[in-house]
Write a protein that binds this DNA or RNA. Structure first.
Length: 279
DNA sequence: CTGTGCTTAATTCTTACCTCA
DNA sequence: TCTGAGGTAAGAATTAAGCAC
């Protein structure tokens, strides 16, 4: 791998962002123009150059969609999930419910959402074994897959999307919301790790390059001192600084006839490809 | 069986932004 | 037009359940 492969001239710490607008979340009424900070975080969340959300278990996308459709239909018909294991997990998913907080109540925007919340609460009340410890929900594979699919389409949800997804997954909107929140956090963490690794590599490369150039400089200095004055820098061996494109020594004011003339540099300055640190 | 580390659902607090009086 | 209060959504930090080893 060459230096250019590791560090391109366009190196940006943010690693760039996709230009597509489709990943942007739909704005809610209260979010008509949510501003620079949000856009920035959205972009961070959406930018996953090396992170792909692949389907697990070797399922093709079509297979998954079929499975999800079937599951959604069953959920809407109150049919139990397919396997015994899934049944168990689904049950725990439906029954797990932690304490209602004032804050959560406040979050419930529509009456529909309140109704869903209330129905879900009912389930938990029925299953309540008397302990107040919070039960951890374990999402089924199907639920996770659908959430992932949805996350790929948009990393944030508007209230309607949340409602629909919650209904489809037989979860509370709050649970869908939390899942997306945590998913964004994990994405960001992963991206930070990737960025960190990338920067480490860049740092190592620069260090090596710097060491090499220092060595080269020392050698040139030593060579210069060792040569008699009349032998120093014959015109035919004059070298040109590729960085500033000026000929050092004798050919300084050379015209267009100069054998050392070069075409204008087509690239930006690149610390990884610039061969000379001595000028 | 127990301890440990990891994953992740859930909670709490903070921040940024918006609306409205 | 400016300002402060109140509300909302998202992120950061944290807690804790469940699981594998």
């Amino acid at each position: 791998m060459g230096l250019d492969d590791v560090c391109s001239p366009g190196l940006v710490l943010g690693l760039g962002f996709p230009s597509t607008a489709e990943n942007k979340p739909l704005k809610t009424d209260n979010q008509k123009s949510r501003k620079p900070s949000l856009l920035k975080s959205e972009q961070l969340a959406n930018f996953e150059p090396s992170l792909t959300l692949s389907l697990s278990g070797g399922d093709t996308f079509d297979m998954l969609v079929k499975k999800l459709d079937a599951t959604a239909n069953k959920a809407s018909n109150n049919e139990p999930p397919p396997s015994a294991a899934d049944l168990h997990r689904q049950d725990s998913a439906a029954s797990s419910f932690s304490n209602n907080s004032v804050k959560r109540e406040r979050e419930l925007g529509s009456s529909e959402e309140v109704e869903i919340e209330r129905l879900s609460s009912r389930v938990s009340d029925e299953d309540d074994d008397g302990s107040n410890g919070r039960k951890k929900l374990r999402l089924t594979k199907v639920q996770s897959a659908l959430l992932e699919e949805s996350f790929k389409q948009h990393s944030t949800l508007n209230p309607k999307q949340k409602q629909d997804l919650a209904r489809e997954l037989n979860l509370r909107p709050r649970q869908v919301e939390v899942w997306f929140q945590n998913r964004r956090a994990r994405t960001k963490l992963k991206q930070t790790e990737v960025d960190c690794e990338f920067l480490k590599k860049c740092c190592e490369t620069l260090t090596d390059e710097n060491r090499r150039l220092q060595k080269e400089l020392q050698e040139l200095k030593a060579l210069k001192l060792a040569q008699p004055l009349y032998m120093q820098l014959p015109a035919a061996t004059l070298t040109m600084c590729p960085s500033c494109e000026r000929v050092g020594g004798v050919g300084e004011n050379s015209s267009s006839k100069s054998p050392f003339s070069m075409a204008p540099k087509p690239h930006f300055f690149n610390p990884f490809t610039n061969p000379s640190a001595a000028c």
